[in-house]
Amino acid sequence: MFRNFKMVSKVVFGRGCFSQLGDILQEQRQGSESVMVFLVDDVFKDGSLENRLPRNADDLLVWVNVDDEPKTVYVDQLVMQVKAHMAGKQDSHPSGVVGIGGGSTMDLAKAVSLMLTNRGSAADYQGWDLIKKPAVYHAAVPTLSGTGAEVSRTTVLTGPQKKLGINSDHTVFDQIVLDPEMIADAPNPQRFYTGMDCYIHCVESLEGTYLNSFSRAYGEKAMDLCRDVFLDSPEDADDRLMMASYCGGMSIAYSQVGICHALSYGLSFVLGLHHGIGNCVAFDYLEDYYPEGVGEFRQMMARSGIDLPRNLTAGITDDQMKTMVDVALVLEPLWENALGRDWKTVMTREKISDLYLKM
């Protein structure tokens, strides 16, 4: 049966389009007590961004910290903060949730919007299509590009027992505002690691068994844009990187990622590595599976002056290794996309452990 997946309803793109955010949100405001919740990466706390936010008097601004990967317990705390702000107001839910930041901040915005309408903890919904009720209106403004979080149906979260996304059609943003000026000051190597998330999306999608013409069209375009940005550095590199992220995210919407992302989840859960760094660390050891992609990745890495962290798994305990392997193996669709339906006969626990030990 063909998948009938949801896409972002509305997209605005262009330099300076952030200035339209107020007009866009105004369409969602209803009544004199309408509340918008702004979840903004706290890296911007002491800058000029706060004064540019189109806030009304009763809107809630929360500076979120994403030094660590987003956790389900943090989502639950944010939801309680929003509910406390809404107590005694005419509406029980805000008119919308707006995430402004990189992939982790956007994932938090998606998760909070979902958990405002679904009972329990965010940890209860880690998996595929467990969400039953639509989220409140939610929008995003990326300040980093590469993760594809702005278009994906996943909000990646670390729970008490696993790192696994809330995968649902209800997760997809209702609106995204793609302004290349918002990513202009992203520092290297953070910009590189996030951009490589997009590049690796493309490699894994284009070489996966789930590949189809829809995924290929978006994946090939995103791959070309990544090459432009990280091998040629054109004047409009930020514009191209932003569209690479969009297209890369769309490429995996109708296919999947693969081995690198599965291994990265294990690294993040046990060692606390951010997703982009974890992808780069893992991908550099997957030459046997993605030879051309790894070779080109190393060229991009050298051109950007990146030195990957090494020996990360030296000295880990047997229990930690078991947990890493367990977390990676939960992501069965990723392994099947990479290696086919018989992937369990190809990728054993011992092979995964050997890959981790190289890192």
Results as ranks from 00 to 15, higher is better:
A140K: 14
N118V: 02
S104W: 02
L157H: 11
P94Y: 00
N51A: 14
G148P: 09
Y125E: 14
P333T: 10
S104D: 03
H138M: 08
I316L: 08
Q161D: 14
A84V: 11
C17R: 07
T143M: 12
V82D: 04
A135Q: 04
A328C: 12
L329Y: 02
L267E: 05
G340A: 13
L21H: 08
K163S: 02
K162T: 13
R298T: 05
Y137R: 01
S95N: 10
G16K: 06
A244Y: 00
V64M: 12
E292S: 10
E69I: 06
D23W: 04
L61N: 10
K110F: 11
D91A: 06
V75Q: 11
A57L: 10
K221Y: 09
Y246M: 13
L157D: 10
F230G: 09
A109L: 04
D284F: 02
F44A: 01
N212T: 12
M80Q: 12
L78P: 04
G293A: 03
T117S: 08
E350F: 10
L267P: 02
K132P: 04
V98E: 05
K45D: 08
L273H: 06
G102D: 05
G148Q: 06
M223R: 12
R216P: 15
L49K: 13
E332S: 07
R119N: 11
P309G: 02
N65H: 06
N188E: 15
H275R: 01
G293N: 03
G248N: 13
G340D: 12
R216F: 15
A87C: 04
V64G: 07
G96M: 06
T317S: 15
V66Y: 12
G165W: 07
D42F: 01
M223F: 13
G47S: 09
E220G: 09
H138C: 12
Q77K: 10
L116P: 03
G120C: 06
M242N: 06
L308Y: 00
C280E: 11
N279V: 03
L355Q: 07
